[in-house]
Design a protein around this nucleic acid. Sequence first.
DNA 1: CAGTGGTCTAGACCACGCT
DNA 2: GCGTGGTCTAGACCACTGG
Lengths: 248, 248
Amino acid sequence: MPSKSERIADDLRSEINGGVYPKHMPSEPELIERYGVSRGTVRAAMAALASEGLVIVEPGRGWSVRRYDPLVWEPDKFEHLGHRRDTTEAGHDAWQAEAAAQQRTPGQQVELAIVKASPLIAERLNVSEGESVVVRKRLRLVDSVPYQTADSYYPMDVAQGTPIMDPGDVIIPGGLMTAAGHRQVRFTDEISIRMPSKEETARLSLPAMTPVAEHVRTGFNEAGRPVRTIITILPGDRHKIVYYVGAE
Amino acid sequence: MPSKSERIADDLRSEINGGVYPKHMPSEPELIERYGVSRGTVRAAMAALASEGLVIVEPGRGWSVRRYDPLVWEPDKFEHLGHRRDTTEAGHDAWQAEAAAQQRTPGQQVELAIVKASPLIAERLNVSEGESVVVRKRLRLVDSVPYQTADSYYPMDVAQGTPIMDPGDVIIPGGLMTAAGHRQVRFTDEISIRMPSKEETARLSLPAMTPVAEHVRTGFNEAGRPVRTIITILPGDRHKIVYYVGAE
DNA sequence: CAGTGGTCTAGACCACGCT
DNA sequence: GCGTGGTCTAGACCACTGG
């Protein structure tokens, strides 16, 4: 026996899928009127649709049908493994060049810090927990809208005395790691799917009910030593991650 | 000025992170008592924590702190590209062998069907929209709990007259595609992060607020023709996806 | 059985977007 | 200023879980 709010949600869902609401949903008072229920019930129905990522609400403006147009995110392209071409250009790193190629305007804010290694970072970089590591925190924007965060962690001795330690938005053709004398030859990418923390929601200005991918890339040099770990937080409504397996 | 429910949520969140509740959260009446608010307010606070994936509720049993122990999912391992070893064994396909290696008990339910190609499938398999394609729908279980769905789509002529068309759980050492005479040499993997639909939530018995990854793998044969598209739905609380880039 | 959350009602006041 | 949703209250009845 479906509840009232469930039946309302089902009804609205099929209307949405049928294209009845190109943009705005009926207002709460309208739905109260239409279904003859109390406001709480209407809101429960909308919350159910929101939890499926179908609708979104903006205070003062109302409920609307959610639109997605994710940018393609190709982790393969951002590194230089020999068989990939160097996509960097003057004033752009590999990511920015890729965004520009997709007709979008990239931007980023960079912060440099020295922090104690978290358990995750310590394990990836093969250092002791609590040991000092260098982190370059980047907030990437596309068309002036927050797009993703990308925080790169380096063992102290890898970063020391290299351009990695320059605060600000350093662009080095060929990449920071090569400049630092640590060419990476392989990577391990770990992807977890989860809901964002309160802090991530704020930092990325995420709408409610937007899941994220946590992409942890650890790069190894020729000697097999981990020299960098990048933690990228990718909001689901803005990304499609693409890998090419077995391609030459 | 944070709202009452927000302050309650903040309070409980730090308690959770501090390990105050190894398992169960206080009941709603207890929280009403503790914070001197109405039930709706307490429930709003819990809903906020639930939306971060921190807590979960089971009717009749109460709220509890959510636990995660994702299985590692390595898309690289499930295909035979020459430089990967064949992990299949008698009675197990590549995925089942992998699950067994992680000390879990795999299982799967298979359904065979012929359906009209959706726009997504038509584009991936390079067939016309609405054209008939063969689909093997699998629901994979680990320790008897739903783990993921994996639906493989084949162009009609690829599947015709091959073991692909056998209904039921067919195991072929070396893989179905090789048996069908279509060795795949490369793959395109597209990963989207989103909230599950109502149907997916039911099929996978997902707890509330569990995001999923939609992993779309399209395989190409030597001639560059797409011969299979697999759509895998991976619940975030049960998976960690791992790729190895540039590894030999 | 008592205790848990799930749903629903009918009010109220507030902050914010728009025009 | 009017219309939107955001928050909160104080009640009620129901369904499910547990011992």
